[in-house]
């Protein structure tokens, strides 16, 4: 399996404060990776830096062999990376359907609108209502669905299950499984262990702005004790 995303010695800054201190990670084509770590270790920052939202950065980010550091923010998606932010980013002044069709299609192989509506019937039903009138779960579905249309190869999700009811969390798990089956590469930050262990192939553990361990899902049971201690669960 070739590496789709390669990050090496990545540093990032918020103004004066140095947040990422040399992140190294590799995401293979078709893999699902979960980044674990306590609050404030730089998980979200890592995702936002890879996306190019945080511009004060140094190091190496290669996507499909291409150097991403010089790519402007509005070209990141065109290179094939899609982003579902933590706060979901549903637009209040747009209808559900406008929200859904907002991100431009960047490559073939995205889901057609009909298929998305099959997968998320709620969105079809409420497509004319204001985006932010949806429930939290529906908003999360919408945030994911709108990226599926675009044909990106790598899907980046920041805590997709945060604050959602168990039944919705399960639904999100199913959707991600389906995407995996279609060959989508997924990189997510997740606090919910059980959820992550069901979908991830591999984990990265993050501390103080760098990756301190990575291991396949098979090793998870053996590492539970240490992980619980590190994560303070």
């Amino acid at each position: 399996m070739g590496a789709l995303l390669q990050v090496a010695d990545l540093h990032a800054w918020y103004g004066e404060s140095h947040v990422l201190h040399g992140v190294d990670m590799t995401v293979g084509e078709g893999e699902t990776i979960t980044i674990l770590g306590r609050n404030g270790v730089g998980k979200t920052t890592t995702l936002r830096t890879i996306m190019g939202i945080i511009r004060a950065r140094k190091g190496e980010i290669r996507f499909a062999g291409r150097d991403m550091l010089s790519v402007p923010l509005h070209r990141t998606a065109h290179a094939g990376i899609g982003f579902v932010p933590e706060e979901r980013g549903i637009f209040a002044s747009l209808t559900v359907e406008e929200n859904l069709t907002l991100p431009p299609v960047v490559a073939d192989g995205g889901m057609p609108l009909e298929e998305i509506y099959d997968l998320f019937p709620n969105l079809l039903e409420r497509r004319a209502s204001q985006g932010t009138k949806l429930s939290g779960g529906e908003q999360q579905m919408l945030a994911m669905a709108r990226i599926l249309r675009t044909g990106v190869r790598l899907l980046i999700l920041d805590e997709p299950t945060e604050g959602l009811a168990p039944v919705i969390v399960q639904r999100i798990g199913e959707v991600l499984q389906k995407l995996k089956a279609r060959g989508m590469t997924i990189l997510l930050v997740e606090q919910n262990f059980r959820f992550a262990s069901r979908i991830a192939d591999r984990f990265y553990l993050m501390e103080h702005g760098r990756m301190v361990a990575d291991f396949p899902v098979a090793e998870l049971p053996d590492r539970m004790t240490t992980l619980n201690k590190v994560l303070g669960v």
């Binding site: 002044s93 907002l102 675009t150």
Partner: peptide
């Protein structure tokens, strides 16, 4: 729609490739 969305959240709209 691009205009309205960008009025709300410029960065995210840009991250979508606009």
């Amino acid at each position: 729609a691009y205009l309205r969305a960008a009025t709300e959240n410029t960065v995210l709209v840009q991250a979508f490739g606009i």
